[in-house]
Structure formats: C-alpha cells, structure tokens
Amino acid sequence: MSREHKKGMSLIVKTITRLTVGLILLYGIYIILHGHVSPGGGFAGGVIIALSFVHLMLAYGKETALRKVSRSAASFFESVGATLFLLIALLGFTGGYFFLNFLGKGEPFKLFSAGIIPLCNIAISLKVGAGLFAIFVALVVLNLDSEK
C-alpha cells in the first residue's frame, strides 16, 4: 500500500465511502431542488451536502476532502449564498417591495414553478452547507496540533 492509503480509516470503510458519497451528494441536491414540491428544502439539503463532505473527510483524512473543497472555497461559497439570498430579496424592489415573488408562478406540481422559492432554496443551501463544513473543518483540523 502506498503512503496515501495509510491515512484515514480501514480499507472497508474507504470502499463503502467511495460507493456512497456520491449518492449522498445527489440526494442532497434532489432535496434542495424539490423543496417547494415535496418535504425538504434548503436547510435539510444544505446539511446533507455538508454531511457528504464530512463523510469523505472522516474516511479518507483531511487532505482528500480539502482537495475537493478547501477552506477558502467554503468561505467563498458561504458568502456567495448570503449575497445571492439578499440579491434575490432586493430584486423584489423592481415590482414593489422586499422579498416580492417577482417571477411567474408557473404550473403547480412541476419543478419549475413557484417563482423565487427554488432560487432562495439554492442560495440557503449554499450558505448552510458551506458554513457548516467550514465550522467542521475549523473544529477538526486546526486543533490537531495542540493535542500532540
């Protein structure tokens, strides 16, 4: 085995993680995009996306997960989510007031409906997922050297 394989957990955990982590990420994206039709929404989907990266980090060690999403990228995505949410709210002023649903309502029970609600869900999920992943990385990685 190479040196890279010695970090993280055992081979069984790594194999199962390789099979399941993509499915977890896809499930999170499904929960976010169907938030206005079925149970779910931006909060739950964002936490699921953060959990998929946490899963990767627990199984493979911190280098592999931080290569996918670094800390600065997590901070960037969180700021993008917050700004996008505020921007959508401000765009409501084109029709009258803050948080106006200025897009068309569309047909019910379809994916592209309900105006700004799916866009807000995407913004909130970016914010929640990136923020919680940044918290986890800060708690796990940065305190390791003090315990040795």
Partner: peptide, 11 residues
C-alpha cells in the same frame, strides 16, 4: 430555522 441555528450555536 431554530434547529439549524441550534446546531451552529452548539458548534
């Protein structure tokens, strides 16, 4: 919303 806030405050 309160559940997600409670997670952040726990962290």
């Amino acid at each position: 919303t309160a559940i997600v806030i409670s997670l952040a405050s726990t962290a």
